[in-house]
Simulated assay, not measured.
Amino acid sequence: MNPRIAVPAIAGWLFADLLLAFSIVVLGTQEPPPLPVVEPTVSPSLNPKPTRLALERRYIKVSLRVDPRKGSRSAIGALRRAIKSHPELKDRTAGIVLTFGAVVSGGEDFAKSVNKLLPRVDRELFRDVATRDFQLIGGTDGAVELQIYLFFNK
């Protein structure tokens, strides 16, 4: 290695290092730009609505048997009777219903057809409910199991 380094080479590196240090000092002394002031546009209400609804952890299990070959009228009647047999569902609102259906073929489709009937069974209980359709494994033909998750009572 050459013990003597040219002076212009050292001067160039020194100039670059000083320029970098000066840039860091200048950037560090700058004040941040002012944040925009946001005025609230919503006026307070006397009766505020809750913005988030919470579901209870436990669910109500409703089991029944529906003949898939009969029309929706008999299925609605069977669902109404099964729902009325659970007094804890009275004057409540469901958030999620998991429906398990058992038929020889297409249990998920059967569960979906049951879910479509829920608003006609009880408008208040199943108002804006989210549903999921599942195959009931090991169930007899026409067996339906509803797992109803309710919103907390206020």
Rank of each mutant, 00 (worst) to 15 (best):
I10E: 01
T93E: 04
G106H: 11
L98N: 12
A16T: 08
K61V: 14
A21M: 09
L125I: 02
V104K: 15
V104Y: 13
V104M: 13
G12N: 14
K116R: 15
S72D: 12
P68S: 09
S43W: 00
A16C: 12
D128R: 10
L55A: 06
A54K: 14
P8L: 01
L20W: 10
V38I: 15
A102M: 12
E39M: 15
D17L: 07
V114Y: 05
T99S: 15
T93D: 06
T51Q: 10
P32K: 10
I83W: 00
V104H: 13
E124S: 12
P50E: 13
R57E: 12
F110V: 11
L35C: 02
R65P: 00
Y149Q: 02
R92V: 02
E124D: 15
L14M: 13
I148R: 01
V103C: 08
V97S: 03
A130C: 04
L118D: 03
R80H: 08
L19K: 11
V37D: 08
K84L: 14
G101M: 06
S23Y: 05
E39I: 12
F110C: 03
R65I: 14
V121Y: 04
S45P: 03
V121C: 04
W13V: 08
I96V: 15
V62S: 09
L19E: 05
G71P: 02
V121P: 07
Q135P: 08
Y59C: 05
F110M: 10
E39L: 12
R73G: 03
L53N: 01
A82K: 07
T131P: 01
A130E: 09
D91C: 04
R81E: 12
V129G: 04
L150M: 09
L20R: 12
R123N: 01
L19Y: 06
L19H: 05
D17V: 14
I5V: 15
K116Y: 09
I10N: 04
A75I: 08
K90C: 00
K70N: 13
I24P: 01
A111V: 13
